[in-house]
């Protein structure tokens, strides 16, 4: 998906079809260019939708200084895959009773999409999704992280997610007692 445009060619593109282009070009913090369908970008990202509506999209590459090329490539990949996927009936009707703001379980392709990511890539993608206001992608990546937390001991989780235990020994004991009902084993 990487676009390598000469300056003249980019200039040309700009003149010919500034308003008519059906893609937007995004530029990562490390200067790589990615092209994504305007429709998908606007539908999946509130931030990009705002930029498109507000005319602040740069055809030479809209700067996204907070997002590295690997994360941006995943964002664009997600947008493209999403554009191609047909929403399944199961997904739409999966809400359980009482469920007011349902999180719809990831579809098979979304699961595969996050499963292949390294730990670092997953966290970078979470950040990118949050920055771009991509609610569904944020949900799917956070769902993956929540699954990684399940069934692990507090110490294991702290290690995997680099969380510093900032309780004193006494506090920790107090909290464990207070939360005893939530623990299966202790």
């Amino acid at each position: 998906m990487e676009v390598d445009k000469g300056k003249g060619e980019a200039e040309e593109t700009r003149k010919v079809a500034e308003a008519d282009r059906d893609t937007v070009t995004l530029k990562s913090s490390d200067g790589k260019l990615f092209e994504v369908s305007k429709e998908a970008a606007a539908r999946l990202s509130t931030v990009l939708a705002g930029m498109i509506a507000g005319g602040s999209i740069d055809d030479n590459g809209t700067d996204l200084k907070q997002i590295g090329s690997e994360a941006l490539e995943n964002v664009v990949d997600y947008c493209n895959k999403h554009a191609n996927s047909i929403p399944s009936a199961a997904l739409i009707s999966s809400s359980i009773s009482f469920n007011t703001a349902p999180f719809k379980e990831p579809e098979e392709w979304e699961r595969k999409f996050v499963d292949r990511l390294s730990h670092d890539a997953l966290f970078d993608l979470v950040e990118a999704a949050n920055f771009l206001g991509m609610e569904r992608l944020l949900d799917v990546t956070c769902h993956k992280i929540s699954e990684m937390m399940k069934g692990k001991s507090p110490d294991q989780i702290r290690e995997v997610f680099n969380i510093k235990n900032d309780y004193t020994k006494e506090e920790l004991e107090e909290i464990r007692q207070e939360l005893a009902w939530a623990f299966y084993d202790d």
């Binding site: 929540s146 702290r158 969380i163 235990n165 900032d166």
Partner: peptide, 26 residues
């Protein structure tokens, strides 16, 4: 990660698991 992201993670756990995560840190 900002709080809203961590909340989105916790939200996808059962209440029991979410409460358990309280032992991780403040």
């Amino acid at each position: 990660l900002p709080n809203e992201v961590l909340i989105s993670i916790v939200e996808k756990l059962s209440l029991r698991d979410a409460v358990q995560m309280g032992v991780l840190s403040r």
